[in-house]
Design a protein around this nucleic acid. Structure first.
Lengths: 339, 339
DNA sequence: CGCTGGATTGCAAACGATTACATATACAAT
DNA sequence: ATTGTATATGTAATCGTTTGCAATCCAGCG
């Protein structure tokens, strides 16, 4: 029957109307008469017609796709944001292309490429390490930064990174910890900076000292968490509590110190950031700061679609709240518990 | 300068040739004279021309995108396969659309939709729960099944699921375990079936009995692993070793029993499947069966591109080897260790 | 000198949809 | 009856490439 897929011409012929009417029936049903509308719809059903997205996009001068730039697709933290993005973009007839900035040599160049290639109607940036300068490209498509704010008037979905970090520190301090350390994300990342700032503020507000040798550098990955664990174990004087800038690092860290015979939270309290799925399944369950990941994706997508429709390049910054989740990886410091 | 992006017309004008020649220079350089080729290329550079993928796709009757159907984008197991897919598809100028079968109501209908919509030049199936019958759609684009074989002449990238499971059981038996249980994936999934078959074979080959009450049902998720743990804890007579059909379930399971005071591997040996990143970071580090995930993605993409080029709908089945990875979550059964 | 054939290049028709503009019709108001 | 207005539909240009076919040029050959 349908050797080739039906085109709008076929539908028009079957329905006895022009292609214009068919197109209108499908996009703006209200402007066609009820009787013709029915005729067209039944012709559509009969022929099994589906609009050819490529042709439609060409004519409408859009690509129908949104590019999402993220540092590491394998990080479960991002996948949930992707789910949120997809839940908004798919119904709006946008495809979602995912680009991994770590797969190529230069993330900034990758971004620049996408900005000029015209391959997408918009971009979502999930990588806080990208340089804001690259965005100065003239005539670029709309861009939304998710998770953090990179400065300028770039619209973004922000999370209370600083407040989350400060809350974590305050909680540890209230448990009695006076020696609190931190494992950061990669240097230069906006998330790293804001969480580090929050960590400092938290210490300051509780009247605790900031010791540089208790601030270890990581890169958000499990491996870097395990590496930080080795550094912590080697310290002459160890902090009794640690706030890590990501749950992934906390997983790597906890596993490593536990295998070295350290008890969590007996010997060391651990707080992560993100509340990835595994956090509640660890032993002990990981105390952390929850980010509503699906919501972040949804908001970012909404912001972007709005910019695409209105042709704007700037927009508001949406601030999303975080929540401290107390689980079993924290407790009073050993000295206190003993005494 | 370039208010609008340059079109092939602009390049042709600047180079003093026809658009046909520009197009040919870019796609089949060998057929144009060296001097014209240079002229065109410098005109391309001067104008900053990038081919409009939409127009190109329309003319060439392709969509330029591949759809990947997977059950759960948040599962880290899949993300690495995606990375493998992308590493082949991106250079070949294909975009990768990701569709989550769990986000909608009916996975099979979603597949059917994509098969008829003409939205993609090919599909990659990563969800073993899909029905092979849906693929009978006439005129459908090429499809590759990754991870397992669904029957028929559907080309696929297979993994030695059965052998992997059997190896795990054999290893546990050799450690002295006579009471070995299993936690399965979701019913009806091809992966579930082949791993369960391998589990049975492993038991049989070691002369061990198969006890139905030691085969618990899961769905590959951490939560279902934790649920299985509760069932295991409630058993009057417990197996001393457990093979779980996914690492995620093993994570949920181990966390849950550990919090209940059970020692792994002291009281119970645990083996997972997949070797997801976190496996080595757990305490104890998880013994598992490694699947080369990136390789699976690469092979699947290669197979698919080949089918697209040659117009084939059937193809070979690529078999990928698995590897048993011994870590610290297994040991001799308590009785033996004590005696 | 005319012809053949290979190498280049140009012409123009697709690809399938959308939409500005023109046209047609019906009906109310003057 | 005429004009105006609103509603509904058709006509045809257009989006930017690719590519079959025709045209051109030039060298080599009989």
């Amino acid at each position: 029957m349908d050797r080739k897929t039906a085109t709008i011409q076929d539908v028009a012929r079957v329905a006895g109307v022009s292609t214009a009417t068919v197109s209108r029936t499908l996009s703006k049903p209200s402007v066609v008469a009820a009787t013709t509308r029915e005729a067209v719809l039944s012709a559509v059903a009969e022929t099994g017609y589906r609009v050819n997205a490529t042709a439609s996009n060409l004519r409408r001068q859009r690509t129908g796709s949104i590019i999402v730039l993220l540092p590491n697709i394998a990080n479960p933290f991002f996948s949930q944001i992707l789910a949120g993005l997809a839940s908004v973009l798919t119904p709006a007839q946008y495809g979602m292309l995912i680009a991994d900035t770590q797969s190529g040599p230069d993330p900034d160049q990758l971004l620049g490429d996408y900005l000029t290639s015209g391959q997408a109607d918009g971009l979502v940036l999930l990588d806080g390490s990208l340089s804001p300068e690259v965005l100065a490209t003239p005539g670029r498509p709309p861009v939304v930064m998710a998770c953090e704010w990179m400065g300028g008037d770039l619209p973004s979905v922000r999370v209370e990174n600083g407040r989350g970090a400060a809350t974590a520190v305050a909680h540890l301090a209230r448990l009695g910890h006076r020696a609190i350390g931190h494992v950061t994300g990669p240097r230069g990342n906006v998330l790293t900076e804001s969480r580090l700032d929050g960590f400092r503020e938290g210490l300051a507000s509780m009247g605790l000292p900031l010791r540089d040798d208790w601030v270890l550098e990581g890169d958000f990955s499990m491996d870097s968490g395990a590496a930080a664990a080795r550094q912590w174990l080697a310290l002459a004087e160890r902090p009794t509590a640690l706030f890590l800038a990501s749950d992934e690092m906390a997983v790597g860290f906890m596993g490593a110190v536990q295998r070295a015979g350290v008890s969590v939270p007996g010997d060391l309290s651990v707080v992560g950031f993100d509340n990835i799925e595994i956090a509640q399944h660890l032993s002990p369950a990981l105390t952390t700061i929850r980010q509503p990941r699906t919501l972040i994706g949804v908001r970012a997508a909404e912001l972007l679609l709005d910019m695409i429709e209105t042709g704007t390049r700037t927009g508001p910054s949406d601030l999303i709240e975080v929540e401290f989740i107390r689980r079993d990886s924290v407790g009073p410091p050993a000295a206190l518990a003993a005494g």
